[in-house]
């Protein structure tokens, strides 16, 4: 290691330490009855109004997801395969709306699951209604995703894979052309790096939170397991890839 590398490592450690101190001071400030009361009240508010939140999520997330899917369809339907430059513009607009729709739809599903987990209580009177709403939300999100994928496959019949099958991602990836594959790989790698850094941040937060607010070891365990899974799965595929280094497209 040269001097520059050692210096860079020291600078990074110092920056990490400063962030840790700032975060600890912030949590210490939060560890006061007034703030704890706000957090408790917020928790009670969510549990009490969970029914309204479920409906709110449906209106604010699922319906916009459907709207953007319809917008994507309108753009894709404008493609004539005759005017290349115009088709490019419609395709870009369609892709943007399509990706936005899928992002909102996934967010809707995740928030529903989170809300269900946070407000799960067998003793509440509307327990079965909540179960019905969660299942209804999950079915709506899944149906929209399947319809959207089938539509994309209909307008581009090169793309294969049955959306309800476990092999879907493998079949879909295999049917993409080389430029599409490159884009998927780049997105996948960037998402991996970002999620790894975010998980590292969560580990630090959960450790400091446990030290100051006694939040327990479970959040630390879960965030460490997520990071362990990310790193080992990446290494597994990297090792697997080494056996077949020739790129076959």
């Amino acid at each position: 290691m040269n001097k520059k590398t050692i210096l860079r490592m020291i600078v990074l450690m110092v920056i990490g330490g400063i962030i840790g101190i700032i975060f600890s001071i912030g949590l210490l400030k939060l560890n006061q009855p007034a703030y704890i009361n706000i957090a408790t009240q917020t928790g009670h508010f969510i549990v009490k109004n969970s029914l309204a939140i479920y409906i709110g999520l449906f209106l604010c997330l699922f319906l916009p997801a459907v709207y953007h899917y319809q917008k994507a369809k309108r753009n894709y339907n404008q493609i004539t395969d005759m005017a290349d430059d115009k088709d490019d513009a419609y395709e870009k607009a369609g892709e943007k709306s399509f990706n936005l729709s899928m992002l909102i739809n996934s967010t809707y599903l995740i928030l529903n699951m989170m809300l269900f987990g946070m407000t799960f209580d067998k003793t509440r009177g509307d327990f079965f209604l909540i179960i019905f709403l969660v299942m209804f939300s999950a079915i709506c999100a899944a149906v929209l995703e399947i319809i959207a994928i089938k539509y994309i496959q209909k307008i581009d019949n090169r793309l294969k894979g049955e959306p309800t099958s476990f092999r879907f991602h493998q079949d879909f990836l295999e049917s993409c052309d080389e430029a599409e594959k490159l884009r998927i790989y780049k997105c996948g790698y960037n998402a991996f790096q970002l999620s790894k850094n975010v998980t590292l941040g969560f580990i630090v937060i959960t450790i400091i939170s446990n030290l100051i607010l006694n939040t327990g070891i479970f959040p630390i365990f879960i965030s460490c397991m997520i990071m362990l899974m990310q790193v080992t799965s990446y290494s597994y595929y990297a090792l697997k890839g080494n056996k077949n280094l020739i790129y076959k497209g």
Binding site: D81, D84, D87, D88, E91, D156, R158, D177, E178, A179, E180, L182, Y247, G249
Partner: peptide, 22 residues
Amino acid sequence: VGVSRQTISLIERGDYNPSITL
């Protein structure tokens, strides 16, 4: 050539360098 219209567009614009096969 077995690729999407978008890929042809990307190559024409110089935004993507195709593989030897393509």
